[in-house]
Design a protein around this nucleic acid. Structure first.
Length: 316
DNA sequence: CATGTTTCCTGACAGC
DNA sequence: TGCTGTCAGGAAACAT
């Protein structure tokens, strides 16, 4: 299931391959979920747009899109053309705004300001794949974006817990995560955030309004690495314990990103490649197996409706 | 208000 | 073999 490290891996892969490309045509194959914005409106909005960049916010993938300009082949669809002319009339100022980006080596590159966003949440089983147009179509493919480069970006999601959302900036505010990014949260902020007297620490870790990006795997793994039992009430943890947890969480997420994420269930990155962090798991899905640190069998309980794994000897 | 519970959805797998 | 039942879970909706 894609959590922060998996989404980060996919975002980097898609960004590397697709930034600078342009969406020629958008196809949406299902009329029900997973659409947060009606599919027809998403298709209209996406066609003709340049992909400026792709990045991760919490567990969401955000594609920053340029204004809808005619594509290289001159095959811009009617819907896209309508959108372009309307945009030009409405607000010429936000169309192309040349900006200067200060690179690390002092290089200057013109940067277009994003005028729209396509936001992808992968849910449990969502996959975002860069393919050739003739690649066999996986079952449960809900979206196909054909690109000026001749490739396709596909969204596949068997369980349909994923969500696709379209935002036209100016009309709608830019996407923001509800909580704070666990990779960058400061010590004091983390301490105050988790000072909740009635919430088990694991439930708090999973709450996306507090931190954005932690799911079941990395909640269990960070609690093991900091030696804290999942049922402990977060407000009763000491300052030292919460600091240990913050550092363990950051480390486990960074390690996982380095290994391309955890491939449990059927997670793959934008090229269909599996991650390797599942080999480093200490407790997640290791019920009954000996603890890597003390050999005590890993215990499984249910907490906040989720399978929860911990070592009864290493975690207090 | 802050927690806990249910719901959505399909594939994988166990057991008969 | 093929059927049924159970389980997995992110986050919204609903209940306590």
């Amino acid at each position: 299931m894609p959590e922060l490290p998996e989404v980060e891996t996919i975002a980097r892969g898609v960004h590397q391959r697709l930034s600078g490309d342009r969406i020629v045509m958008a196809w949406f194959g299902s009329h029900r979920e997973p659409f947060k914005t009606p599919p027809a409106r998403q298709a209209k909005g996406l066609e003709g747009r340049a992909i400026l960049s792709v990045h991760r916010t919490g567990k969401h993938l955000v594609c920053e899109l340029g204004p809808g300009l005619p594509n290289a082949q001159g095959t811009t669809s009617q819907t896209a053309e309508k959108l372009i002319s309307r945009d030009k009339k409405r607000q010429g100022t936000t169309s192309v705004v040349p900006k200067v980006q200060q690179g690390k080596c002092g290089a200057l590159a013109p940067v277009e300001r994003s005028s729209a966003q396509w936001i992808v949440h992968l849910g449990m089983t969502g996959r975002l794949l860069v393919t050739t147009p003739d690649a066999p179509l996986a079952p449960h493919t809900h979206a196909r974006l054909s690109l000026a480069s001749g490739r396709e970006l596909r969204f596949v999601d068997p369980r349909r817990f994923g969500r696709l959302e379209w935002r036209e900036l100016g009309r709608t505010p830019a996407f923001q995560a509800a909580g704070i990014d666990p990779l960058t949260i400061a010590s004091e902020k983390f301490y105050r955030l988790f000072h909740r007297p009635h919430t088990p620490i694991k439930a708090a870790l999973l709450n996306q309004k507090l931190l954005s990006g932690v799911g079941n795997i990395y909640a269990d793994e960070s609690l093991f690495r900091s030696g804290i039992r999942p049922r402990r009430l977060s407000g009763r943890l000491t300052r030292a314990e919460l600091e240990a947890l913050r550092l363990a969480l950051r480390q486990v997420l960074e390690d996982a990103i380095r290994l391309g994420g955890s491939s449990v269930s059927d997670y793959v990155d934008a090229d269909g490649v599996r991650g390797f962090f599942q080999l480093e798991h200490c407790v997640y899905l290791r019920t009954g197996l000996p603890c890597r640190r003390c050999q005590t069998p890993i215990r499984r309980i249910e907490l906040a409706g989720r399978g929860t794994h911990y070592c009864p000897r290493c975690q207090h």
